[in-house]
Design a protein around this nucleic acid. Structure first.
Lengths: 256, 256
DNA sequence: TCTCCAATTATCAGATTATGGAAATTTTTT
DNA sequence: AAAAAATTTCCATAATCTGATAATTGGAGA
């Protein structure tokens, strides 16, 4: 592990559970002397990734917000998804939420949402939150499109979590449930993340043919009767295809 | 300049004007050999700050979105501002925007906004964008509360920009315009950033007594007649005081 | 205003490890 | 299949990172 990795590793200390650190605490947590940690913090603060907001307490800094603007403006998946999400929003009730997720280190992250802040459902799956691959429709549809080799190692690692998620007790039933998702083109879950909340998700595929993310409609179970559910399925299937198509055009722009 | 600073300096290459880089381009831009740059990119990619989205092209990565969630959830200014902004939103027309800004390296960054996405004015001052200290009411009210020593060096550096912003051709008139802002407790500008758009801003002061940011109401010039303008001024003055007060309570929480 | 205490920075010798040119390997293109 | 490009590996050298300690700074309290 290089110096650069250690410095960047300091950033990983800052989690939702523990969002602020002193230099002494960080030094202790990483098993490094405080003098070294002071140096690391000086570099990170100089880059704006951390700020000393009060009395030696540090939190993530403005550079993060600045870079996030770039992600919103230029991340290929977010850019490809934006117009599709806006289009979807016109076809669902104002309580529903349109969500765009991406795979990241065998987890799934929400990278964009479209919702009426005044009327939309309060859900816990907010932008930037990571979910396991086995929880929620946005995750499950991604899982279903992973490469077989990846799936095998996932099953070997997390068969307990997979079983608990209702994806099958053994390899064969696991494969079968994923095949069913692939075949239908969507994943549907109810209450996987928030109680009474339902998700319907379609895959987004990269130009190379790899799964990169998913697009979802989130609504209450009550609100979505048979008919409406069928409409949502059609809508989201089309949306997934459209984002996949747009991604193909965006992925290799004639930049610079 | 240390290794850590150089690695973090790579992130500064990624701007809105030039959001994607290849490793060769970055090596050339920083005057480093490609083998070194490959190492740097590996560290940054490993930390999730960059991603290789296609064919050697890198953009800012998911770790940025994850850390941004932390900023939204835990940054003291944003946390202090949130309820006040939500309260304000109920007292202004749906086209208006409530904005929270902070000072960052003698520039001003928008760190939060409350607006009805369907009806609000389209403005260019979005979250994460940096503004000069001399442009827009959010900036000017911050400028007015900087320490005298800082102001002197600002004037020495940027007297041309200051004059162009209508803040005074010489040091005395500059001081006088800032004193006027301090005295009234708000800064008001029209068309400083977007044409036909008006901003009214009040300062947010840290518990130590330093200016840390500002809170603003953004509306069209046409919409804000004399009466409404006076109402906005009162509202935003109160909001600034309230955020300042909340910041005092948040700044030293009994964490851990 | 002065003193004291904690927080932060500077120092410095030693050694880890970062560097960078080039070669080897892998991947992509023709 | 060959050629080109991209990426990784290699390795000797020297740069610079490390970490214990000392010096300094900045406040809080007397």
């Amino acid at each position: 592990m290089s110096t650069a990795d250690r410095v960047l590793g300091v950033l990983k200390l800052f989690t939702m559970d523990r969002p602020q650190w002193t230099i002494d605490e960080a030094a202790q947590a990483m098993g490094l002397p405080v003098s070294t940690m002071y140096r690391y913090f000086r570099s990170l603060t100089g880059a704006g990734l951390l700020v000393n907001f009060a009395a030696g307490r540090y939190v993530v800094g403005p550079a993060v917000i600045e870079m996030d603007r770039q992600a919103r403006a230029w991340d290929p998946l977010i850019v490809a998804g934006r117009p599709v999400m806006a289009g979807l929003a016109g076809h669902v009730p104002p309580t529903a939420i349109i969500m765009l997720c991406r795979i990241y280190r065998l987890q799934v992250m929400c990278v964009d949402q479209v919702a009426d802040p005044a009327r939309a459902l309060p859900i816990s799956y907010e932008r930037g939150r990571l979910m396991p691959l086995y929880r929620g429709s946005a995750s499950k549809v991604i899982l279903a499109h992973l490469r077989p080799a990846t799936l095998r190692s996932c099953f070997a690692e997390d068969c307990a979590a997979i079983a608990q998620a209702g994806l099958g007790e053994d390899w064969e039933t696991f494969k079968a449930s994923l095949r069913a998702i692939r075949k239908s083109g969507v994943a549907i879950t109810c209450g996987d993340i928030d109680p009474g909340i339902m998700g319907i998700s379609a895959p987004v595929i990269s130009p190379e043919g790899d799964i990169v993310g998913s697009i979802s409609i989130v609504s209450t179970v009550d609100e979505a009767d048979e008919d409406r559910r069928a409409t949502y399925v059609d809508l989201i299937r089309g949306a997934g295809r459209e984002v996949t198509e747009r991604l193909r055009e965006i992925a290799w722009p004639a930049v610079v």
